[in-house]
Design a protein around this nucleic acid. Structure first.
Length: 598
RNA sequence: GGGGUGGUAGUUCAGCUGGUUAGAACGCCGGCCUGUCACGUCGGAGGUCGCGGGUUCGAGCCCCGUCCACCCCGCCA
């Protein structure tokens, strides 16, 4: 039996052990040779003494980094003064009796060590080497422990793990689909699922009552540090529940995961905010609550100024909001310009500032009556030495840019403590959202999300095709609340769900409001609509973004660090070189002709 | 589609105002070394300066184009 390298201890002293692993490092003294042998569990020092075994000692000189060795040896206490407290096996060493080189290794493209600044592309190209780094292995193992915890919990609560198709049907709403051509049906395509949404609802209508799946989802959209084209969801759905049931269960599940994986216990209920409140206070529906720095609406006060930028924004129905950058009144022109650049990416035209420094120091102070400045300062709880920052524009621009600024200030002011976790439920999302480009409403969550009970009548009274669709009428659309909820952790949306529509008439109305014709709806979601007519139970669920959750648990900066084989920003896998061209024969079988610019 | 940063030895980087032979560290190869653990020490090899074009007596450096990587916007829940 092989012993784990990292588990050799003083209790093994005197025993003979067989170990195997990779050469983490070789220290060849000419006489004595030391080898740190590494396997998944850790490293142990192996000693080769020429006086013990000349033949083995000769072999030892040939050994290089990342050779794979089989070692037979005796565990010995290290001589006094040579112990290494840095490693877990540092009190002992293995004296070699027999040594076999199982595999050799060419010179490496990069060093196998935790601390790396090698380019990610190179690391992904040789991912099998990169994955040998203990830090990355730790992340992958942590991911395993997370999914194990999920399975234990959901199994204990009566959930059934059921697989859903990967070759499925393209859906018009939501993200761009990955398509797979069908050889048997020329000109027809499968789509890879953006989520198992429709199938899990069908499973509820099939009477399984509690379903879950740890499942790959696919979205052909541009990548980010926290977005990959294929990613994993912990997907779950329950029948005969209201949103409170789902939220309680998921909250409980997350608490168990944290306890199992990080040993942290969360006793209190997770904080909850409505969408409206979180947008007002933080400008975002996924605020990082590890720090305060709340936004304040100062539109009512700005009215009393003669500052055209503020007045103009208000006249156009926009907002003026501010944030208090605590203690940053000393900021230079350059630093203020940097902050301005931050907000400009979201469309803000500028960033107004007031330094609270022997009164008010600001290029815009002259437009404000003294008492208005005081009122603004008071609203932002300003103290001597603070820097007040303002954006005035359309509501969306103001909130997006100040939310970004808030995160930036949180970092600059060192308000974000590592190993702190702040969960937040965001509830009462609007059901619908106006899409400027397409000139129609879209489901904010997805088209199967149930409206809030109290808004159902309002919903049924709405009529998208009303030619008189006035601004007032439009605002009615966005007043309808959904039974949707997101779970946010440290500024990341790690999950979201809803209670679904289980009544045909409401689902029909929903499609009507989304300007999807009955014919269209039938050809795209007909099977779901039909199932709704054969005894559909009320149901709802949620999906957790496993990659993001594990990223946070691992303290990683990118989900690529918690995915064994991730893709680059251009959705390429440098290891396998996917995607690639294919033979003409394959294309002919699929009845596909290419139209690619040279 | 757009903005930003970067691309020089196997790797991470330096390379001044455009100047003649492009450097460092680590790694690699060889010698020496019996208590090291980022071993030490002596020596050595190693370059399509991402790619294409241009300006110039002369380009790693300037200009144009292009490719790739990362971060962000749009997009995506």
């Amino acid at each position: 039996m092989r012993t784990w390298c990292g588990e050799v201890r003083e209790t093994d002293i005197g025993s003979s052990q067989s170990i195997a692993g990779w050469v983490n490092r070789r220290r060849d003294h000419g006489g004595l040779v030391f080898i740190d042998l590494r396997d998944r569990s850790g490293v142990v020092q192996v000693v080769i003494n020429p006086e013990d075994n000349a033949e083995v000692h000769n072999t030892a000189h040939e050994i290089r980094n990342e050779f794979v060795l089989q070692v037979q040896g005796e565990v010995r206490k290290r001589p006094e003064g040579t112990e290494n407290p840095q490693i877990e096996t540092g009190q002992v060493e293995v004296v070699v009796k027999g040594l076999k080189i199982l595999s050799e290794c060419k010179p490496l493209p990069f060093m196998i060590e935790d601390d790396t600044d090698d380019s990610e592309f190179l690391r992904l190209k040789h991912r099998y080497l990169d994955l040998r780094r203990p830090v990355i292995q730790k992340n992958i193992i942590l991911r395993h422990r997370t999914t194990k915890s999920v399975r234990e919990y959901l199994d204990a609560h009566g959930f059934l793990e059921i697989e859903t198709p990967v070759l499925t049907k393209s859906t018009p709403e939501g993200a761009r689909d990955y398509l797979v051509p069908s050889r048997m049906n020329p000109g027809h395509f499968y789509a890879l699922p953006q989520s198992p949404q429709l199938f899990k609802q069908i499973l509820m209508m099939s009477g399984f009552e509690k379903y879950y799946q740890i499942v790959k989802c696919f979205r052909d959209e541009d990548l980010r540090a926290d977005r990959q084209p294929e990613f994993t969801q912990v997907d779950l759905e329950m029948s005969f529940v209201e949103k409170e049931d789902v939220m309680t269960l998921v909250e409980d599940l997350l608490k168990k995961i944290f306890k199992d994986v990080t040993d942290l216990e969360f006793k209190e209920q997770f904080q909850r905010l409505t969408y409206k409140e979180t947008m007002e206070r933080f400008g975002s529906d996924k605020p990082d609550l590890r720090f305060a720095l709340e936004l304040k609406d100062v539109g009512d006060l700005a009215k009393d100024s003669s500052f055209k930028v503020f007045l103009g924004a208000l006249a156009d129905g926009g907002l003026v909001k501010g944030i208090n950058a605590k203690g940053l009144a000393g900021y230079s022109r350059k630093e203020l310009d940097d902050l301005t650049e931050e907000v400009k990416t979201f469309g803000a035209k500028g960033l107004a500032w007031i330094k609270v420094k022997n009164g008010f120091e600001s290029p815009i102070a002259k437009f404000f009556p003294e008492q208005t400045l005081k009122a603004i300062a008071q609203r932002l709880a300003a103290e001597e030495g603070d820097l007040l920052l303002f954006v005035a524009d359309k509501g969306k621009v103001v909130n997006d840019s100040l939310a970004r600024l808030r995160n930036e200030l949180g970092k600059r002011l060192n308000l974000i403590k590592n190993d702190t976790y702040k969960f937040l439920w965001v509830t009462d999302f609007p059901l619908l959202e106006w899409n400027e480009d397409e000139g129609r409403y879209e489901a904010m969550h997805h088209p199967f999300t149930s409206p809030a009970d109290e808004d159902i009548e309002k919903l049924l009274s709405l009529n998208f095709s009303d030619p008189e669709l006035s601004t007032v009428h439009r605002s009615l659309f966005t007043e309808v609340k959904a039974k949707a909820y997101d779970i946010v952790l440290n500024g990341f949306e790690i999950g979201g769900g809803s209670i679904r529509i289980h009544k045909k008439d409401i689902q029909d109305k929903m499609f009507e409001l989304l300007n999807i014709s009955a014919d269209d709806a039938n050809s795209k979601f007909g099977f779901l609509l039909e199932a709704l007519e054969y005894g559909a139970p009320p149901h709802g669920g949620l999906a957790l973004g496993l990659d993001r959750l594990v990223m946070i648990l691992a303290g990683a900066q990118s989900i690529r660090d918690v995915i064994a084989f991730p893709k680059t920003q251009k959705a390429v896998c440098p290891l396998s070189n996917a995607p690639s061209t294919v033979d003409g024969k394959q294309l002919r079988e699929l009845s596909i002709k290419l139209d690619v610019a040279e």
